[in-house]
Design a protein around this nucleic acid. Structure first.
Lengths: 144, 144
DNA sequence: TAAAAAGTAACAAATACGGTTACAAAAATG
DNA sequence: CATTTTTGTAACCGTATTTGTTACTTTTTA
């Protein structure tokens, strides 16, 4: 798996922002929850801003907050925002095309990987950020 | 993604053995089809032998061949044979448990990953090695 | 003007993986 | 019995990826 912690940390970030209910949250505070360096958080947030799940405000009192779009987003949206696109074809796999098997296996495997990926994405699409937030609610202040 | 080429190469290996119809195939020959080093092939075959999908015969005239069990196996069986078990929990993800979000997010993410993995495995379970072999048939000698 | 914070580049350390070499063990063959 | 072939492993190198960190610029607020 390529870096799978990108996705995990991103969900954590967005869950944290949901937990903070729209306040402008600086990367330093998020980093404390994730237990890593603020720059790591800002790197991932750059992708989430590009995907319009988060807005950033610079300067004193600034920070990050969820957009309205993020309220209804699924974990698949998050996955696609932060996970680098699977490069066309398989990594480190270049069989000998002069062998009959080597010549055909690559396209077969591509369709297999497409199926597997699609199975995974179907599951991620069924979990919303709101659902993750709801599982967090018991510890959420200001909600009864 | 951890090494996804382990799985891809393993499917290639087993497809090649199917293509060779039960003959004892040395790792050198398989390596030529995969375009890699024989030791890489033998390393993966060690896992496939352990999973009883392949038998190995040492010595001159030896090599590898599919077991009867391999005839009906699915790509999920191959995946499980060669893909290192997901280490309990997420790699490189150790949130701050003194933060209410950090304390809960890990178990939430674990169930998310379990779902995603299960979606992927469901797809892999629906593709048999025989089906891959069938897609290879047009180039397979000795079959009309 | 000063402080706070994002944005980003650059670099270090750790990790993982593929490829390679080397060698021991086993099995067939003459 | 000696030789050859081949598996089975261990060890190592180079590369790529990822995380963490430092440093600096830009923007915004007070």
């Amino acid at each position: 798996m390529s870096g799978n912690s990108r996705f995990a940390v991103s969900v954590h970030i967005l869950a944290y922002l949901a937990y903070r209910q729209g306040a402008a949250v600086p990367s330093k505070e998020i980093a404390a929850s994730v237990a890593t360096h603020p720059v790591v958080i800002r790197r991932l947030l750059a992708a989430l801003v590009q995907a319009k799940l988060v807005v950033a405000r610079k300067g004193a009192g600034g920070g990050f907050a969820l957009t309205p779009a993020a309220a209804g987003c699924t974990l698949l949206d998050i996955y696609r925002a932060v996970e680098p696109k699977p490069v066309s074809g398989l990594a480190h796999f270049a069989p000998n095309h002069r062998c009959p098997v080597g010549a055909k296996i690559e396209s077969i495997l591509q369709s297999v990987f497409a199926r597997a990926q699609s199975g995974m994405e179907t599951e991620l699409a069924q979990v919303t950020l709101a659902a993750v937030h709801a599982q967090l609610r018991p510890v959420c202040p200001g909600k009864k």
